[in-house]
Computed example of a mutant assay.
Amino acid sequence: MTKKVLVLGASGGMGYSIVKELLSRGILVTAFARNREKLEKLFGEEENATVFSGDLFHLEDLDKAAQDVDIIYHSANIPYIEWKEKLPILMSNILQTAEKHAAKLVIVDNIYAYGRSGGAKVSETTTKNPHTKKGNIRLQVETQVKEFNVPALIAHFPDFYGPNAENTILNYTLLNVVKDKKSSYVGNQRISREFIYTPDGAKAIVNLSLLNEAYGQSWNIPGPGVISGEEIVKTIRKITGYQKGVSTISKNMIRFLGLFNRQMREVVEMFYLNEEPVVLNGEKYEKLIGKVPSTSYEEGLRQTIAYMKQNK
């Protein structure tokens, strides 16, 4: 029985929701991130949470945080510009720590390694054929995990939105809505794509993590279907009464910003996801566990906006 776990990247969007989900099940959680002040703000009043500020690139920090834990949840991320050099080192540190403490490893992953989908829903048996630098790095890290002697499961998610999910493209739109300023949407507003509400994703990944048979495999965790930017804006207006304009951020605009900002140069490469979205097939999860946790976009956006207003 799982008694104590470690969540890496606990101050991020998915990490925060994973901590909350675990706590709701009475599991002791060590919430790990770099910024102690933010951790205290998020979890300081939680009876079963211990906050640990540390650096994932320092093995001794990980070692100390992983004392007596049964499972390590890896939901930490680093800026795109550091992926090539640092992501394999980061994963190596986490794998070494899991092996040393005989802990299982649960990895939050994105959809980049799948590459272009050709319009079909992708399942876990779909050949991963990344065509971007970042997709190739994610696939390299996945191979790294499989070569290590640690029981691990990898969960692939579409783009996140939800409470405390600040580093996301939908958050970019919602920030100005909450401030009642003109806002923007990244990508063609007429194209439908998939998002997942972080508390749903957290519930699904925790469900998997508590089953021994889920390890040694990859899992797709889809959202509640696809939605266009136009539908998102319409839903936001319905929830909030927001009246301001929402402009479109195009690939060329991001490419132009990339002339001055290296991080934006890296974003351009992933823009294909706004033009030909990758949509996940969740049948494998449903066969093992049942229905994938699914909050409607309207309710998810309502909860997210309420959280943002409360935590300005």
Score class of each variant (00 low, 15 high):
Asn171Ile: 00
Lys203Ala: 15
Glu40Gly: 04
Asn136Glu: 15
Arg237Asn: 03
Lys104Phe: 10
Val5Gly: 01
Ser296Val: 01
Leu22Val: 14
His101Val: 05
Gly229Asp: 12
Leu211Thr: 11
Lys38Gln: 05
Leu174His: 04
Gly119Arg: 05
Gly216Thr: 07
Phe43Glu: 00
Lys181Gly: 06
Gln96Pro: 08
Ala152Val: 06
Asn252Glu: 14
Val178Asp: 12
Ala102Leu: 13
Thr127Arg: 09
Leu39Asn: 00
Ser192Ala: 15
Arg138Leu: 02
Glu230Ile: 02
Met270Ala: 10
Gly241Lys: 01
Phe157Gln: 07
Asp109Gly: 10
Ile236Ala: 05
Ser92Val: 02
Glu269Asp: 07
Phe32Ala: 07
Gly12Pro: 05
Glu40His: 08
Thr143Met: 04
Glu231Trp: 04
Val108Asp: 08
Thr143Asn: 13
Pro277Trp: 09
Leu8Glu: 04
Glu269Gly: 10
Ala10Ile: 07
Glu124Lys: 03
Leu211His: 12
Val122Cys: 07
Lys244Ile: 09
Lys84His: 12
Ser184His: 09
Pro222Cys: 02
Glu124Leu: 02
Gln189Glu: 14
Thr125Arg: 01
Pro130Met: 07
Asn110Tyr: 14
Ile305Lys: 03
Asp180Glu: 13
Arg36Gln: 10
Asp63Pro: 00
Glu147Asn: 11
Val5Asp: 00
Gly119Cys: 02
Ile205Lys: 06
Gly118Tyr: 04
Lys251Gly: 04
Arg25Tyr: 07
Ile196Ala: 03
Gly9Thr: 11
Ile191Val: 13
Val186Trp: 07
Val226Gly: 03
Asn167Thr: 11
